[in-house]
């Protein structure tokens, strides 16, 4: 019963919120549909939201953001935007793939941007990130800070996307130290995995107990639990998607940036300039679409020699000298 009622009520409310937008004039209107972890996940969705806010400020477009209460709501939220004749509808997260496909076919006159999956539709611009390349770099950095030979990885929901982070990370760590041992845990196999900091903290404490010195976490809202554990044990953690260094200064070695903000901003900009293109666009280390973060919060942690080594690795990846294992390709075999 609860399973039926909860989504239904939220979809209705959210749809109402979308519909209540007054029909505007010639101004470009952009609708953003976020995942359930929301615009304040300090991570993936937060990055998309920041990109859109920047577009609103610098490009003068009208924007509207909604958050899905669960995975069943995406289709109706996107459709509500489409029916209101929004010019560009941005869907963030791989969960939205099927609903974008449906809505793109139903509303061929409008444009869609899908982040993290390839919709393969004529009016959809699909943006994918080479997470494994960025994870490779932070994996190398983790290994440089783990003289004991053990680093950890904690993933949110066990899905291919997160596996891709893991394989890249492990490869990077092993590049620095071939004997590196990578401990790996996942929070779960359902969407709850993104919203469970207490469990993430227990996982991290366990990995620290087993000797891990640095833990890379890719788990949405749950990530803060890992940062808590790092601060408690005076060890290091690595953040993900947005720059999370500020959350626990001194205990977050770096963050693996996934510039969703850039992807969103670029797309809106291209749309405004009439240069919007559809199809699959990839963001890798070459274009710094995936990167590691450096700021005042981790300046003391990352040394000049560390930086040099990482830049060396980046150049080798860009030149094709290093082939970072890609879980998506491994999976296909």
């Amino acid at each position: 019963m609860r399973n039926i009622l909860r989504p239904l009520g939220f979809v209705l409310l959210s749809a109402l919120a979308v519909l209540s937008v007054p029909a505007a004039s010639a101004q470009i209107r952009v609708g953003l549909v976020l995942e359930r972890s929301g615009k304040d996940d300090k991570s993936f969705n937060a990055s998309a939201y920041q990109g859109l806010k920047r577009a609103e400020k610098e490009l003068g477009v009208m924007t509207k953001t909604v958050e899905a209460p669960d995975n069943a709501a995406y289709e109706s939220l996107q459709r509500a935007f489409a029916e209101k004749k929004f010019d560009l509808i941005i869907a963030v997260g791989f969960h939205q793939l099927e609903s974008v496909k449906k809505n793109a076919a139903r509303f061929p006159g409008q444009k869609f941007l899908l982040v993290d999956e390839d919709a393969k539709a004529p009016n959809v611009r699909s943006v994918m990130f080479e997470e494994h390349e960025g994870s490779y770099l932070v994996g190398a950095l983790a290994a440089l800070h783990a003289p004991g030979g053990k680093v950890g990885f904690i993933g949110g929901m066990d899905v291919p996307l997160i596996r891709r982070f893991e394989t890249g990370y492990a490869a990077g760590a092993k590049k620095i130290n071939p004997k590196m041992q990578v401990l790996s845990n996942y929070l779960g196999v359902t969407g709850e995995a993104w919203n469970n900091p207490p469990k993430a903290k227990e996982l991290a404490l366990d990995q620290f107990n087993r000797g891990a010195e640095v833990i890379f976490v890719a788990a949405g809202n749950s990530g803060v639990g890992v940062f808590d554990a790092a601060a408690e044990r005076k060890k290091l953690a690595i953040g993900v998607d947005s720059n999370q260094n500020w959350l626990k200064p001194g205990f977050i070695l770096t963050s693996m940036l996934k510039r969703v903000d850039e992807a969103v901003f670029d797309s809106v900009k291209l749309y405004k300039e009439g240069k919007f293109s559809t199809g699959l666009i990839r963001y890798g280390v070459k274009s710094k679409g995936v990167d590691y973060s450096l700021d005042e919060h981790n300046a003391r942690l990352v040394s000049e020699t560390d930086k040099k080594q990482l830049e060396q690795l980046r150049t080798e990846i860009v030149k094709g000298k290093i082939k970072v294992p890609d879980y998506y390709l491994i999976q296909k075999k």
Partner: peptide
């Protein structure tokens, strides 16, 4: 067990 409230925690 955690250090802040997060959504649907």
């Amino acid at each position: 067990l955690a250090s802040s409230f997060s959504r649907n925690m």
